[in-house]
C-alpha cells in the first residue's frame, strides 16, 4: 500500500473532474491549485495517472497554460461516439476526417510547431478549403503499401473530397448547404469548439477559428501518420500564417 491517504485520492479525482469538464485554469481556483500540485509533486502526478487509468483515460500532456489534457482509451465510457457527431453521409464522413487532418497539417506543418506551446493559430473555412483542394491531388497519388492502412483510406477520402462541390448555398438565406465541402469544414469547426480544441475569437467573423493548445497536444499524438506527412509537405510550401 502506498502512502496516499483519502484526501489525496479525492484531490486527484477532483483534478480529473475539472479536466473532464474542460474548465479554464484560473489562479486561486480549485482546479488551478490542484493543477499546480500536479505540476510540482511527482507522487500526486502518479496518483492522478492511476485514477485516470482506472477511468480508462490517459493523460496526454499538462501544458501549464491549458491544464490537464485527457484522452479516452478506445473502450472508455468517455469516448466520443458516432452518435455525438453530425449525421454525415458516408462521403461527408470521409471529408470530415480529411479536414481534421488538413487543419492539423495546415497549422502544424513542421515538427517544431508541435512543441511550440501557447502560440495563437487561426484558421478559416476558406483557408482550409483552399488548402484541401491543393492537397488532395498529392494525397490521391501518394503510394500506399497496405490497402487497409489509414493512408489508403485518406486516398479514398481525397477522391470523395474531389467529387464534392466546394460550396452550395440555400436559396433563401444563402447559408452553406449540406453536400459541399465548406459545410463539412464548418461542421468540423463546431466539433472542435465543442471539444474545446478551438474557440471563436472575439471580434472576428464566424468563419474564423482560434485553435487551442489542446488541439496541438492531440495533433502531436498523430504526428507519425503518413497521410498527415503528405498534407504537411503541402502545407510547408505555403507561406506561414498565424
Amino acid at each position: 500500500m502506498s502512502g496516499y491517504d483519502l484526501p489525496d485520492i479525492t484531490a486527484a479525482s477532483a483534478l480529473i473532474r475539472h479536466a473532464l469538464a474542460g474548465r479554464p485554469l484560473a489562479t486561486g481556483s480549485e482546479y488551478g491549485e490542484l493543477f499546480d500540485r500536479y505540476l510540482h509533486h511527482q507522487a500526486f502526478r502518479d496518483l492522478v495517472a492511476s485514477v485516470a487509468d482506472g477511468l480508462d483515460l490517459a493523460v496526454l500532456q499538462a501544458p501549464p497554460t491549458t491544464g490537464l489534457v485527457l484522452s479516452p482509451n478506445p473502450d472508455s465510457p468517455f469516448r466520443l461516439r458516432f452518435a455525438d457527431l453530425r449525421p454525415w453521409t458516408p462521403d461527408e464522413r470521409l471529408v470530415a476526417g480529411l479536414v481534421l487532418l488538413g487543419i492539423a497539417a495546415l497549422r502544424f506543418p513542421r515538427e517544431e510547431d508541435l512543441d511550440a506551446e501557447g502560440i495563437v493559430r487561426y484558421v478559416t473555412v476558406g483557408s482550409v478549403e483552399k488548402f484541401m483542394r491543393e492537397a488532395i491531388r498529392p494525397l490521391a497519388i501518394a503510394p500506399t503499401a497496405d490497402a487497409k492502412s489509414i493512408e489508403a483510406y485518406a486516398r479514398s477520402a481525397a477522391e470523395a473530397y474531389e467529387r464534392m462541390p466546394g460550396l452550395l448555398r440555400t436559396e433563401k438565406r444563402g447559408q452553406r448547404k449540406r453536400g459541399c465541402t465548406m459545410r463539412v469544414i464548418e461542421d468540423v469547426f463546431d466539433l472542435l469548439i465543442e471539444q474545446r480544441m478551438a474557440r471563436r475569437p472575439a471580434r472576428m467573423d464566424d468563419d474564423t477559428l482560434q485553435l487551442t493548445d489542446r488541439f496541438r497536444v492531440h495533433v502531436a499524438e498523430i504526428a507519425g501518420s503518413e497521410a498527415l506527412a503528405v498534407l504537411r509537405a503541402v502545407a510547408a510550401q505555403q507561406p506561414a500564417k498565424g
Binding site: 473532464l20 469538464a21 474542460g22 483515460l57 485527457l70 484522452s71 479516452p72 478506445p74 465510457p77 468517455f78 469516448r79 466520443l80 461516439r81 458516432f82 455525438d84 458516408p90 464522413r93 470521409l94 470530415a96 476526417g97 480529411l98 481534421l100 487532418l101 492539423a104 489509414i150 483510406y153 485518406a154 479514398s156 477520402a157 466539433l191 471539444q195 480544441m197 488541439f215 492531440h218 495533433v219 499524438e221 498523430i222 501518420s225
Partner: peptide, 19 residues
C-alpha cells in the same frame, strides 16, 4: 452528464474508414 472526449487519432481513423 458524462462528457464525451474526442481522441483525434481514433476519430480520424474512424471517419476515414470506408463504410
Amino acid at each position: 452528464v458524462m462528457p464525451h472526449l474526442m481522441r483525434l487519432d481514433t476519430l480520424i481513423d474512424a471517419l476515414l474508414e470506408p463504410v
